[in-house]
Amino acid sequence: MLAESYTAVIARGEDWVDGSTTEPYEASWAREAIIVVRTLEVGTLKAGAKAHVQVSLDGMRWIDEGTSLEIRDQVDGLSMARLSHFGHYLRLRAEMPDAMTGFMLATLSLKA
């Protein structure tokens, strides 16, 4: 059997500010994931912006998973995180101090 895989675009051209989150994505079927965050437009980004991975069992109450990605302050800047053993829902929460904003793309690649 080929392993099922699926890539979801969880943020497609969205202005992130401090506290922005992606929509809850159900991934209970997947064993592993790669999350990629790409900066489409720099906005007021500087060093120090991060996206934190969060997990949830119900899609409503969220726990920090412990993994964080740098949000790059150049166009097409990429960062990546590998995840495993993450349970049910996944999302990203942006931490962007100093009123930073950025126009972002984020993808979630899942594999059974």
């Binding site: 699926y6 159900e26 991934a27 209970s28 079927w29 069992l57 119900d58 409503m60 049910h88």
Partner: peptide, 24 residues
């Protein structure tokens, strides 16, 4: 996305005939 319809109170509801359903 692929969902197994897990609820906070009752746990996994599942699909009609199996574990998963297509969710919008």
């Amino acid at each position: 996305m692929l969902s197994n319809l897990t609820q906070w109170d009752g746990g996994t509801h599942g699909g009609l005939t199996g574990s998963y359903a297509l969710k919008l």
